[in-house]
């Protein structure tokens, strides 16, 4: 419990802090989490939330996240709570896009078919080389890969132990954020890859040519587990 003493000494005014934290009424938890997520902007992982809340247990936080998610939808609010890139984030609902875009006056990011196809290949086969991508798509991948690198949707994760030591590419956290994926396992499973488990994203189901419908992970469970790790990407 070294962390608790560290926090107390850092904020000397928080008298009875421990007691208050232990008693954060669970009813207030959803609103508290809403504040944290608003302040953060970026996706916040479960452990980070538990640490900041300093008191409520993980499963209580999970329940509050679920309640908050449901209340946004039930009340038709202007925000949605989504699980993305190993964390939780507040986002505007899809239906409000035209108005938000008009306000921001920004051109939406362009995602061409070559970019999407290349991303799909990298996402499933990572770490993979340029030659592997070209073999699947039947066209050169040089230009599209450098666009994806610039957009930070893919990254170089190393070199393959093969003749010429070709660069290996993998997807990034930005990739998960841009496509609203909780983690890589949320991608639909390619039958050929023979993966056993899949979570979330029922809207992504393409039930043809070996893509099978994913099971739904509806519990407010921890998304920032090992599922976010690209296969074989060790540090």
């Amino acid at each position: 419990m070294e962390t608790e003493t560290a926090i107390d000494s850092e904020y000397p005014n928080s008298n009875g802090h421990d007691q208050a934290a232990a008693q954060v009424e669970l009813g207030r938890l959803p609103a508290l989490i809403e504040s944290l997520l608003f302040a953060a902007g970026a996706p916040v992982g479960m452990s980070r939330l538990v640490e900041a809340l300093d008191g409520p247990e993980r499963r209580e936080v999970a329940a509050a996240l679920k309640a908050l998610t449901e209340s946004y939808e039930r009340d038709g609010r202007g925000l949605r709570l989504v699980q993305v890139a190993g964390g939780y984030q507040l986002r505007t609902p899809h239906e409000h896009a035209p108005w938000v875009r008009r306000l921001l006056r920004e051109r939406p990011p362009r995602l061409s078919r070559p970019m999407l196809e290349t991303l799909a290949i990298v996402a499933y086969r990572q770490p993979c080389t340029r030659a592997e991508i070209e073999a699947v798509r039947g066209v050169e991948a040089d230009a599209v890969l450098s666009t994806l690198l610039d957009r930070r949707l893919v990254r170089i994760v190393g070199r393959k132990d093969a003749p010429g030591r070709p660069l290996l590419y993998g997807t990034t956290r930005e990739f998960l954020e841009v496509f609203g994926l909780p983690d890589l396992s949320a991608l639909p499973t390619l039958r050929e890859l023979g993966e056993a488990e899949i979570l979330g994203s029922p809207e992504l189901v393409v039930d043809a040519a070996g893509v099978r419908p994913p099971a739904v992970n509806d519990e407010g469970t921890e998304p920032d587990g090992t599922g976010a790790e690209p296969p074989g990407d060790t540090g």
């Binding site: 902007g41 970026a42 949605r80 989504v82 984030q89 507040l90 986002r91 505007t92 609902p93 899809h94 896009a97 938000v100 921001l104 920004e106 939406p108 990011p109 995602l111 954020e177 841009v178 496509f179 609203g180």
Partner: peptide, 9 residues
């Protein structure tokens, strides 16, 4: 729902 195209944070 692509970030900065369909949804915003």
């Amino acid at each position: 729902a692509v970030l900065d195209r369909d949804v915003f944070a």
